[in-house]
Design a protein around this nucleic acid. Structure first.
Lengths: 253, 253
DNA sequence: GAGTGGTCTAGACCACCTA
DNA sequence: AGGTGGTCTAGACCACTCC
């Protein structure tokens, strides 16, 4: 029986930048996550204690705690009082991030593309206006796009944007994700709320997505808020379930 | 124009228990969340600065920061450097928690019930064994339950449990949720990973759920890990999409 | 310049677990 | 008894925003 002691890949943390703009805890969390994901620190391994790590890294305990907590929040580590910190046994896939579908797909080595079906400004229906924090009848932007993955239709993305974005053009959307465009306008996303369900495809949706009318679609309604807490995007999306699904990680604190 | 200054409902924080087992930051976060949810602190309101709050509550700044961060993580507050902390404009529904479906339903003023379709121990198929961290062929528990909501069938819940739980009986499951039972066995849930999708109902599923064969179902595959990072539950669930959907909140940090 | 949140430090005491 | 993570304190300096 080879008893393995606590583990800490000190060599991964040699060149921390203590003066740059990137927070120390972030650099440490990043390297730690990488070490776990690539197997340098294997599943089930016990980490050295926070105090020891802090000493080795010449870092205060709150800072190393913050770094470890970030990795715990991603579902890769588990902490127990009196025991220590351990790598979870079965790894976890990357959770849904606050990025657009376009970026998610780009990152996963696929080729996304977009076909703009509609891009108009119209007086807001009462319910949409209320959710966007506008008066009914004020103009809002209505978008409808078809998202393709490696050339195959994957999702219909319907969005409403508040009146601040009435000058958006088809061109802005054809080249990248909606989030890229909004970020370019200075929007800083902070919170998004999503409701995920399923329903039958309408005849038109079936045609666009290349499935039979009445076949199942995965749906998502999303509200995204910017850094000032205002709604900047309303989304009503539907996906071909054979080409897309959602992944989430829940962590108890 | 009535200019409203920064807000802090000090009266909500009069009786903090400084010696009890409940952490200070938790008590503060709890009261703050309640004050926002019930409108005592309205949408858009700006909170007083951390330093002032800390002084008023006779609490250190890291502690009040931790409390505020918890509420930010729930999507109710937004922080901006140089500006302050604000309540988001449109409130957010409570996110998915690390509880069983049974408890979720119970909390929402519905009457859940369960019908156990299968509860056996069998040699683990290779893939199930691998995910549970067992050897192929070792016994695992296979559960299949029908979940009803106010008497109507809502979901089919298929689960695998590791060999430690071979003594589970139908009776254990008929009375409450699976998570209640496992917690009763001393299991402490820490992390869960979920993949949400959609597909057609099989003939048998349609019969059980009271829908047509081929109609859309919302599906979830879940793995849950305990406090030591081991897999303690594998779930393959499907839901009637007209009776159930998932809500998630994403927060940028 | 004044005020905000973001980061970081260096301690302290506690609850919990293992032995 | 000794070691672990969990909580809490009292400061400090910084980057950012607004006036």
């Amino acid at each position: 029986m080879t008893e393995v002691g606590p583990v800490w890949p000190a060599e991964q943390f040699a060149d921390l930048d203590r003066n740059g703009p990137v927070p120390l805890y972030f650099q440490v969390a990043e390297r730690l996550e990488r070490s776990i994901r690539n197997g340098t620190v294997p599943p089930g391994a016990r980490l050295e204690s926070e105090i020891l790590i802090a000493k080795k890294l010449q870092i205060s305990r709150p800072t190393i705690r913050r770094a470890i907590q970030d990795v715990v929040d991603k579902g890769l580590l588990v902490r127990r009082r009196g025991i220590g910190t351990q790598v979870v046994q079965s790894h976890v896939t990357r959770p849904v991030e606050l990025t657009s579908l376009y970026n998610d797909l780009e990152d996963s080595n696929h080729v996304p593309s977009t076909q703009v079906l509609q891009c108009v400004s119209l007086p807001a229906p009462a319910e949409i206006a209320a959710q966007l924090g506008q008066k009914a009848g004020e103009p809002v932007v209505h978008l409808r796009r078809l998202r393709l993955i490696d050339g195959a239709p994957m999702a219909i993305l319907e969005n409403y944007l508040p009146s601040a974005f009435v000058d958006v053009t088809e061109k802005d959307l054809a080249e990248g994700g909606l989030y890229d465009y909004l970020r370019g306008c200075g929007v800083v996303f902070k919170v998004a709320n999503q409701r995920i369900g399923a329903r039958r495809a309408s005849a038109e949706e079936g045609e666009l997505l290349g499935v039979e009318e009445g076949s199942p679609l995965l749906t998502a309604e999303r509200t995204a808020l910017d850094s000032s807490g205002h709604t900047v995007e309303l989304g009503f999306h539907c996906y071909r379930p054979d080409l897309y699904d959602f992944e989430t990680t829940l962590v108890a604190r």
